Simulated assay, not measured.
Amino acid sequence: MFKDLFATMNDVLDGILTDYPDADEEKTVELAEQLQMLKSMSDNCLEEWLRFEERLADCRSKLVPAPELVSSTDAEGEKPPASEHFTRGQGYYKLYMFPEAVNEFDKLVKEHPDFVLGRVYLAMGYLRLGELAEAYRHFQLLVPLTKSTKLKAISYNAMGCIQVHNQNMDQAYDFFKMADMTDSSFMEPSLWSKEFWPYRRT
């Protein structure tokens, strides 16, 4: 059903793209109305999907202690707090809508500053947006907050990548080494070996 709907919407959009360059004034108005209709349909689909995702999460939390709601990277097995910001933030993140996801997780972390998984999403959201200073700050806060060696290693690795971006190679090397020492399954030793790094990565 959804596949057919979006196939039709894509066909209409393709038609708009094809007709627009040669359209007269009347046709341009018609195409603009079609485009607005597609935008409204898209917004409604997203809104309904988020509403359903919230209800689904609520149902799962009541019927089953829901491991699906906890990221597999969160070895501490935290249960998400009763907050709509978490559900909405996850939904936006999965849709690659990172500004909206960051907005939700920022509110969540302010309400629950010790909720590890919320801060993971917030840090990764900032990273995906290219806001490296904010991402770095939250990864720094995450390291002492979590007991999970995997999350610590992910945080060290992310901070190392940010230091590479900032051309601070010695600091990047130190973070990559800490990531490997924290969780030896997370990174190849050659990634941080000074004999090869940063020229050899395999």
Score class of each variant (00 low, 15 high):
N103W: 12
V102C: 03
Q171P: 01
F6L: 12
P113E: 02
Q167L: 11
C161D: 14
K177W: 07
K177C: 03
E111F: 05
W197V: 07
P99C: 09
M37R: 14
P113S: 07
S155N: 09
M159R: 06
D11M: 08
D19S: 07
C59A: 15
K27I: 00
L132M: 11
V120D: 00
E26S: 10
M124T: 07
A32H: 02
T28W: 00
R200Y: 15
Y93P: 03
E100L: 15
R128V: 07
D22L: 13
L56K: 10
V12S: 05
F139S: 01
Y96A: 14
D106R: 13
P189E: 14
V116R: 05
G125V: 01
D183Y: 03
E76H: 07
P67Y: 09
A135G: 13
Y156E: 10
A153H: 00
A158W: 01
E78F: 09
M97Y: 07
R200W: 13
L63M: 11
E111G: 03
D22P: 05
L129T: 07
E47F: 01
E134V: 10
D19I: 00
A172D: 01
A66I: 02
L141F: 12
F115G: 01
E76T: 04
D58F: 06
A66T: 06
F105H: 04
